[in-house]
Every structure is written in C-alpha cells, then in structure tokens.
Computed example of a mutant assay.
Amino acid sequence: MKKIVIHSEYIKLDQFLKLSECVPTGGMAKALLQEQAIKVNGEIEERRGRKLYPGDQIEVEGAGSFEVEAKA
C-alpha cells in the first residue's frame, strides 16, 4: 500500500487521484470514477468531491491501494 502525504486537513478524491498519479487530469478523474471501481475505506465511491482524511484507504482498480497520510 502506497502512502500519499497531504499538507492540509483533507484532500478531495479527484485531487487525490491526480496526486497519486492514477490520472493526469481532473477530467480523467471524473471518467475514472464513472468507469472503474474506486473504493474508499472498503466502500465503492463515485463522488469526485469526496473528502479524504489521513487514515483513509483508497483502492483504485488497476492502480493499487493507497492510504492518506498527514505531513508530520
């Protein structure tokens, strides 16, 4: 599982997908959410504006598993 460090209280799912290099643009994040299964903490998520907080675990079909981590 890859750790993705954020520098704020939360990150939106579409921004997270770009930061984790699952997609190169926000538009592609929207398409990915419509086409593939993305799970947040084990539940399928389709909202690109979903707020992710440190400790949240994200699974992206075809890209792997990630965990949000706060900057120390």
Rank of each mutant, 00 (worst) to 15 (best):
K39L: 15
G55Q: 15
R50K: 15
I6Y: 11
A72P: 12
E61V: 01
A37M: 09
Q57H: 10
E9L: 09
E69N: 15
E9F: 08
M1A: 15
V68P: 11
M1H: 10
P54V: 03
G27W: 06
K12F: 01
D56V: 13
Y10P: 05
Y53Q: 07
F16I: 00
G42T: 11
A29S: 07
A37T: 10
L17R: 08
Y53N: 04
K3F: 05
K71M: 14
A37N: 08
Q57R: 15
I11E: 09
I11M: 05
E35P: 02
A72C: 07
R47Y: 03
K12V: 05
A70F: 06
K30G: 01
E69C: 12
E35Y: 13
K71G: 07
I38F: 03
E59S: 12
E67G: 02
E59H: 14
A31G: 05
V68C: 10
D14C: 02
L19S: 02
I6A: 12
L52T: 12
K12M: 07
N41M: 14
K71S: 14
M1D: 09
C22N: 02
I38S: 08
E46V: 15
F16S: 04
A63T: 03
P24E: 13
I58K: 08
D14N: 10
I58D: 00
D14T: 01
Y53H: 11
E61H: 01
A37V: 11
K12W: 00
K2I: 06
K2R: 11
K3H: 03
D14E: 11
R48A: 05
G26I: 03
K51V: 02
V68A: 06
L52D: 02
I6D: 08
N41R: 06
E67V: 15
G26D: 01
E43Y: 09
K71C: 12
